[in-house]
Measured scan of single mutants.
Amino acid sequence: TGEEYIAVGDFTAQQVGDLTFKKGEILLVIEKKPDGWWIAKDAKGNEGLVPRTYLEPYS
């Protein structure tokens, strides 16, 4: 389980392990790392690192 967040901007993977997403996408945050990069999963089940500055809590 995780917390749902909504993307407030588009993000394109910079390196292997990053997750590309579009503004408005709902992501499930699995782990919040202290460096500001969180592990998240998208609706298709893809998992990767995302920058927390692009996310806001979804309710």
Rank of each mutant, 00 (worst) to 15 (best):
F11V: 05
V50L: 03
G17W: 07
E25H: 09
P51K: 08
I30T: 08
L27Y: 02
L27P: 00
Y54P: 02
V50D: 00
W37N: 05
E47S: 10
K32T: 05
P51A: 07
K22Y: 10
E47K: 10
F21G: 02
D42H: 03
A7P: 01
N46C: 09
E25W: 13
K33Y: 09
E3L: 10
V8T: 14
V50G: 01
P57D: 04
G45L: 05
K32E: 04
P34I: 11
D42Y: 01
E25F: 05
E3Q: 13
K41F: 09
L19V: 03
G48C: 02
V8N: 09
E31N: 09
Y54M: 13
L49K: 14
F21Q: 00
L19T: 01
E47Y: 15
Y54A: 11
L27C: 02
E56M: 15
T53D: 14
Y5L: 02
G48I: 02
G24K: 03
K32A: 05
L49Q: 11
L55F: 04
D18E: 15
E25G: 04
L27K: 00
I30P: 01
D35R: 04
G48V: 02
A13V: 03
A13E: 04
Q14H: 10
D18W: 15
A40I: 04
G24C: 06
R52M: 15
D10E: 06
S59H: 14
A13G: 13
E3N: 10
G17Q: 07
L28K: 08
W38T: 01
P51D: 11
P57K: 12
I30K: 07
D10Q: 05
Q14G: 10
V16T: 14
E31V: 11
T12Q: 13
L27A: 01
D35L: 06
G36K: 04
K32D: 03
G24L: 03
G24T: 03
K32F: 08
E3G: 09
K32M: 08
G9R: 14
I30C: 05
V8H: 06
F21D: 00
R52G: 09
T1P: 11
E47N: 08
S59Y: 14
E56Y: 10
D18V: 15
P34M: 11
S59K: 15
W37C: 05
K22D: 03
G2D: 08
R52K: 13
Y5I: 01
Y5K: 01
I39V: 11
I6D: 01
D10R: 03
P34L: 10
E4S: 14
R52T: 08
K44I: 10
K23D: 03
G9P: 00
D10W: 05
W37Q: 06
E4T: 15
A7D: 00
I39W: 15
F21I: 11
A40Y: 02
D35G: 10
T53Y: 10
F11H: 07
F11N: 03
K32W: 05
K23A: 09
G45P: 00
T12I: 11
Q15L: 10
F11L: 04
W37T: 08
E56C: 13
I39K: 10
G2W: 10
I30Y: 10
W37V: 07
E47T: 14
V16S: 14
T1G: 14
W37A: 05
E31H: 12
I6K: 07
K41T: 06
E3H: 13
D42S: 07
T12Y: 15
S59G: 13
I39F: 14
L19A: 01
Y54S: 08
S59W: 11
P51Q: 09
D18L: 15
G24R: 03
R52A: 15
N46V: 09
G17K: 05
E31Y: 13
E56H: 13
E3M: 12
K23E: 07
E25R: 02
E25A: 14
G24E: 03
T53R: 12
G17S: 08
T1Y: 14
G48E: 00
G48L: 02
D10K: 04
L28F: 13
L27R: 00
L19N: 01
Q15A: 12
K22W: 08
A40C: 08
T1W: 08
R52L: 09
V8A: 07
G48P: 00
E47M: 12
G45S: 05
G2K: 09
I26M: 07
T12W: 13
F11E: 01
E47I: 12
V29K: 01
K32P: 03
D35H: 09
T12C: 07
T53L: 11
L27W: 01
R52I: 10
D10G: 07
D42T: 06
K41N: 05
L28A: 05
G24D: 06
K32S: 04
Y5D: 00
K33P: 08
S59N: 10
A40N: 00
P51H: 14
I26H: 07
L19K: 02
N46Y: 08
A40E: 00
R52W: 14
S59L: 10
L49I: 10
V8L: 15
D10P: 06
I39A: 06
I39L: 13
T12V: 10
G24V: 01
T12A: 08
F11K: 03
R52E: 12
